[in-house]
């Protein structure tokens, strides 16, 4: 199983999108990215962040929202 496969198995993409969805509703784009990144950093284990980054790096992050993508890249 590749890192990207594992990321699919652990469902980190929809989780990140849900978080981004909340912060998008709170303010502008920059604040939403910051809020999403802060939340993921505060509540996700590092392995989950690595899995999402692996998906992005592998070009397999279809469906990942722009805000969530920017947020996870900020946490690299």
């Amino acid at each position: 199983m590749t890192d990207a496969d594992e990321a699919h198995a652990t469902g980190v993409t929809p989780m990140a999108n849900q978080i981004a969805g909340f912060f998008v509703s709170q303010g502008d784009h920059a604040a939403a990215v910051a809020g999403t990144a802060d939340h993921i950093k505060a509540f996700w284990a590092p392995v989950m962040r690595r899995e999402l980054l692996a998906l992005v790096d592998a070009g397999q992050a279809e469906g990942l929202s722009d805000v969530a993508r920017e947020a996870i890249l900020r946490l690299r």
Binding site: M1, E6, T10, F43, A45, P46, V47, M48
Partner: peptide, 15 residues
């Protein structure tokens, strides 16, 4: 940095 939550533990176990 935080650890795994219960659903994450199960996801990681499957993975």
């Amino acid at each position: 940095e935080p650890g795994l939550r219960i659903p994450n533990m199960l996801d990681e176990a499957v993975a």
